[in-house]
Design a protein around this nucleic acid. Structure first.
Lengths: 341, 341
DNA sequence: GTTAGCACTCACCTCGTTCGAGTGCTAACA
DNA sequence: TGTTAGCACTCGAACGAGGTGAGTGCTAAC
């Protein structure tokens, strides 16, 4: 069967109405709601067709129709295409440039949650080609060395190394000089075995410590595993009856508290080439526990190649329109903050 | 009116039974439940007294009684006193010594939540007399200095300072030496104005930067504001019907996500001299949003004076017995991990 | 002081009824 | 041939009546 323009309009009306009310929507409503000027009976016929094609479903006989995942999908695809042209005029999210990136991201997640009434997440940026910028060893106690490692983008990692050796100031100075001259500007892939052996040779009596330091460096640069996730508004889940039953809500809140499952989402969004906005409906989401929700993600980029993910989780009857707009807004604000700063 | 032993026993029976079932408990139940060998009628008379004294309440006429906050309080006080002697035989919580303290604490919160089925929090330790141990400035980019500040207990803080001045290696070396010789071992109170002016004088042309660095030091040492809170099991809230209604649950989950309000709890627990286990019932809790819950906190101490707070939040009909035991257990395990390590 | 008995209360469950929104089908109409 | 009015039908939700049972307070007897 063909999906002609009229069916399209009716589907759109069903979705729109359902997004607003959360109740199944009947033929009579649509006959009044739209500018189609069709009687409810005609709408009924069309709706029967739409149901047959799988775009809408009836929770039970004698109830109205609600959109299926497939219906949402079609709606979102069309809507996004139209929206692309419009200029978003949404009120400014309150973001002030923060001293620390993590505070800023926390703040952003919160602003987004308050603004949309959905649960939100935002991942710390991930550095694609992460290079060493600076490294320093200091003595902070007997048998303890502090390794401070700074990578491009000014991400700072600290690592305490326990060691039996003792280092005087001069030895440390030498070691620091040695490592900075040899390692600065390199990515983890470029630090290979031959380089390591050269370093060890040059380090002389203190060659043992080199291995420890390099382990710390490797860990600091490979930021895959510690992608920080900031969340906010998990309690918003409870505002939507279709998600608020004991079991579902519990699982969702657990997901937002544990955060770990959400990295999946963040990485998925980063991996794809498409830097725009992505919408997952129901089962499409890459995270098991979000299968009853819709998820909208966007990728932000605060500097060249330094990207993170913003995500919004809500019921399938999410106000996609507004969410997409707000996400773009936030994206832009993050961009602005960092291109200026 | 006097609270004789019989009334005490009846109150205890009411509480016990209510903890188990969550249902109001009637006189007949108690007459069978206890070894008092009294008829339900007698129990009824006693319960009327207990109600008059405020230890129990009736949700409505012709329902059984449930303990009031005051009733719980009495029960808990007696119970804890008795329990003090017993040896807790609870299965080991699975805690492995972690590389990083924050991972360990996360893990501890989770283990506690899984074990008790309540929502849990654990604060990072707070250093009572926090002293500077080591400080170092490094150049990490043009116009950027990295200040690494290590305080007693090996807490490391990084701070990037933007500056218009340029520093060569020698100047930095001097500055570092200057600050370390003058500041090491001091607490934030001990760094006063006269000392600052001496420092500035000695710093010569680079005196401007001293102020910035000291700000960073002050922020690092005053750890009040960034007491980290780790939470787990917020979803457990939903398991208790009396807390699971939309509004209450939303508020609670928000509290656990925001975390900020929980610092109150942590600080309160740390402030008091008593290092044992504390129970807040209902309104007693120092946090507004927890007023419908019971909160049990304990203080752990991983090194001399380095203390943090563990907390458990659940319904008033919490299994105080088990919770107190488990908390002690965890306390001990944390102690052990760090006294050995 | 304790207990048996009794009248009373009240949440809760069940069941039948009504109501209304919504449907599918059919027949008539343009 | 597409559209519409009309009608019988379905089914969840809301409502109210009645029954049930757990629990109470009170009183009188032991």
């Amino acid at each position: 069967m063909e999906l002609d323009e009229r069916k399209m309009k009716i589907l759109q009306a069903v979705v729109r109405n359902y997004l607003e009310t959360g109740e199944p929507v009947g033929s009579r409503t649509i006959s009044k709601y739209t500018d189609l000027n069709l009687s409810s009976a005609t709408i009924r016929n069309e709706m029967a067709d739409l149901e047959e094609m799988g775009y809408i479903v009836q929770p039970h006989t004698s109830a109205g129709r609600i959109p299926s995942d497939k219906g949402y999908r079609l709606y979102v695809d069309c809507m996004l295409r139209e929206k692309e042209k419009e200029v978003d005029e949404i009120k400014e999210l309150l973001l002030e440039k923060e001293e620390k990136l993590d505070d800023l991201l926390k703040q952003a997640a919160k602003a987004l949650a308050v603004n949309t009434n959905y649960a939100t997440m935002i991942s710390s940026p991930r550095f694609h080609q992460n290079k060493l910028k600076f490294i320093q060893l200091s003595r902070v106690g007997s048998g303890q060395l502090l390794a401070v490692i700074v990578t491009e983008g000014n991400v700072i990692k600290n690592h305490i190394i326990e060691t039996a050796e003792t280092f005087d100031d001069e030895a440390l100075l030498k070691l620091n000089l040695l490592m900075n001259t040899n390692l600065t500007g390199l990515s983890v892939e470029e630090i290979n075995l031959s380089m390591i052996s050269v370093l060890k040779k040059q380090a002389g009596v203190h060659s043992d410590i080199i291995g420890n330091v390099l382990d710390a460096v490797a860990e600091a640069i490979r930021s895959d595993d510690d992608l920080e996730i900031y969340t906010s508004g998990a309690n918003n889940i409870l505002k939507y009856p279709e998600l608020a039953d004991r079991e579902r809500a519990g699982e969702l809140i657990h997901t937002f508290e544990e955060k770990q499952p959400l990295t999946e989402l963040a990485l998925g969004s980063l991996a794809s080439e498409n830097t725009g906005i992505r919408v997952y409906i129901g089962d499409e989401a890459p995270v098991e526990s979000l299968r009853d929700c819709s998820v909208v993600t966007a990728t932000y980029e605060i500097e060249d190649g330094i990207k993170g993910t913003i995500g919004i989780v809500g019921p399938k009857r999410m106000d996609y329109d507004r969410v997409v707009g707000t996400l773009k807004q936030l994206k832009n604000q993050l961009d602005d903050l960092y291109s200026k700063g």
